[in-house]
Write a protein that binds this DNA or RNA. Structure first.
Lengths: 344, 344
DNA sequence: ATAGGCGATGTAAACCTTTACATAGATCAA
DNA sequence: TTGATCTATGTAAAGGTTTACATCGCCTAT
């Protein structure tokens, strides 16, 4: 196919071969209706012969954009990350954009560093999974003017930023109501730590669920950190106090797994002795024994929506803030049981 | 800090402010030793005042590179992916490169599409986690000349391509010897499917482990697919045949988890009745009950090494093929027991 | 005193596109 | 026939860098 060239073919090579000017070649590619049928054919043929592909750097320089989006995440290893990234990536790819990833590990130093992609024009927009607006710092340019941003996974506190995520409140309310419907009357909420906004949202959803029958149920929050260790620890603290619920609604699946294993370690069975309900539906929830009853986050969908909103804003320069809360499904597996079957 | 400008400052703005030519500004940044101390100071001051950051597109166009690497993976959700990506990402970032990710989902269509980053010069190099060289196809430029490539996670068959990964053979041999040392004499290997080269490597490591005492042990391979479902299915087939091992060495942790849950479902206990050993040490292996004894892949390290090799090649244009096999550690948890304690 | 050398800086080309504007030819109406 | 209109194409500028080469002082050695 391509000419025997060490250096990739340029638009000029194509023009020469087709016997036209480079402007015509460019037009033949970008706005074919502006060039005569016959000429278009000649150009197409020349492109095929030379194996020409437009140089993205030159295009982007000229057009003042990069067709690239920066995704900033505090932990790539987070079980939710892969699913969201898949969605982000698909939507971006469908619209000719590329996804650049930046793993901040929660440090502002790395975060700073990734902002270079923004300040140098290497990325046109930003997807935030960190939960906070990147801090402007010394070493790099101050980024006085941030590009279009959309947050996913976790909302950004105190900021007018687009957000796409699961409807934490509604989903948690649904989860709690489900536990109530199974006959549970003593339900604790194991939190995800004070720093995580989502934990508060889920807590408030839980409280709304309880309000259905306020005379019977008490708002009972136990602190966790969103890890399975913290789930275990929470259970231990409850046992020490000797005040036990019949059901646990956990901030996330990791916590739920910790809770279950702590209970099992003490010789109790789930769901026969205690019911445990998680959040996220991480890939592993189904492989765990017992299968985890949980709220499924539509991760892929979340990612897709988020990217599409970002790219829309990039295209329109529309600045309307938009918040999109997606429905989370209750996935019933084996970790919750009707309280009447409780044997303890 | 920065001038009140709608448009980002260019090198020209800096030059004007500092009273020098743009060449001098460029030199002050890229080869400071070539410019007089006094001038350098003026330039630095001007840069600070304008908030100048060099335009990456212009730089890259001029220098004929992009400082970007494309990572092609068949599944972002693979439990090994996150760890490797973290390593790739860190090494790239340390050396001023960005990581562009492409999720092929195993389809050649998407794969094709991502190659545009290569043919347009948007990426300088390629990290392959797909296990095969991308196929040259119609729609995009034929990519007659592939950029520097390095494979990780899984080697590329029949190709002279750099590879960085865990030493499957050695690690599997070690795993098998460990089972033997626990007194097991009937050990099956549950494979990862015929298409996966790594499965064969691990199988051959397993066989080498058996060779220590060939008179006692038989090479016993059962087909799986690397999923927990396939692990479950493999166990069921063995029960139907009524020919059971005392220990299972599984292609990966997912399979091992499937094997264990199938055994538990039939009322057996692990490790009391059967020992099960996995591979990968996925993040979940530690949260499973029983804790999974497995081989740990040094994912982060693998990613780092792979990226560094790629960037070295990018810098030197050295074409020497290099294969780097990293040591995998045996992580002893609870899923394997001494056969003398077997109760069945 | 003067040639030669050296250090610091400027000039301009090159990297590869896109696109506003200019031009040329054709068609058409009066 | 002539001017107007329209279509197809070419010319050249612009986008922001880097860097080879030219230039210009100044210092030093003869």
């Amino acid at each position: 196919m391509s000419e025997t060239a060490d250096r990739p073919a340029t638009i000029e090579d194509v023009a020469k071969l087709a016997g036209v000017s480079i402007a015509t070649v460019s037009r033949a590619l970008r706005s074919p209706e502006k060039v005569a049928e016959s000429t278009r054919k000649k150009v197409t043929a020349a492109i095929a012969r030379t194996g020409y592909t437009a140089n993205a750097m030159a295009q982007n320089l000229r057009m003042q954009r990069s067709q690239m989006v920066l995704v900033l995440a505090s932990s790539i290893a987070d079980p939710n990350f892969a699913g969201i990234l898949t969605g982000l990536e698909k939507a971006a790819n469908d619209r000719g954009y590329g996804v650049l990833i930046g793993n901040t590990e929660g440090t502002t130093g790395l975060e700073q560093n990734y902002l270079r992609f923004l300040s140098t024009g290497m990325a046109d927009g930003l997807v935030l999974l960190t939960g906070h607006i990147p801090v402007a710092g010394e070493p790099q340019a101050p980024l006085t003017t941030l590009p279009p941003i959309v947050a996913t996974e976790r909302p950004v506190a105190n900021a007018e930023i687009c957000y796409v995520g699961v409807d934490d409140v509604a989903a948690s309310k649904m989860a709690t109501e489900y536990l109530i419907s199974l006959g549970h009357r003593k339900i604790t909420y194991i939190s995800g730590g004070p720093a995580d906004i989502r934990s508060d949202l889920r807590h408030s959803g839980y409280r709304r669920g309880l309000m259905e029958s306020p005379e019977l149920l008490r708002d009972w929050r136990v602190e966790g950190e969103g890890t399975s260790e913290s789930g275990r620890a929470a259970v231990e603290r409850l046992f020490i106090k000797d005040d036990l619920p019949t059901a646990f609604f956990c901030f996330n699946d990791n916590t739920a797994i910790g809770v279950i294993s702590a209970l099992q370690l003490r010789g109790y069975r789930v769901p026969e002795d205690f019911s445990v309900l998680g959040f996220d539906d991480i890939p592993f929830a189904n492989n765990f024994t017992p299968g985890l009853t949980t709220i499924r986050q539509p991760r892929h969908h979340i990612g897709e929506k988020a990217m599409n909103i970002l790219l829309d804003r990039l295209a329109n320069r529309s600045l309307a803030r938009e918040t999109l809360l997606l429905h989370g499904d209750l996935i019933v597996r084996e970790s919750c049981a009707d309280v009447s079957r409780k044997t303890r």
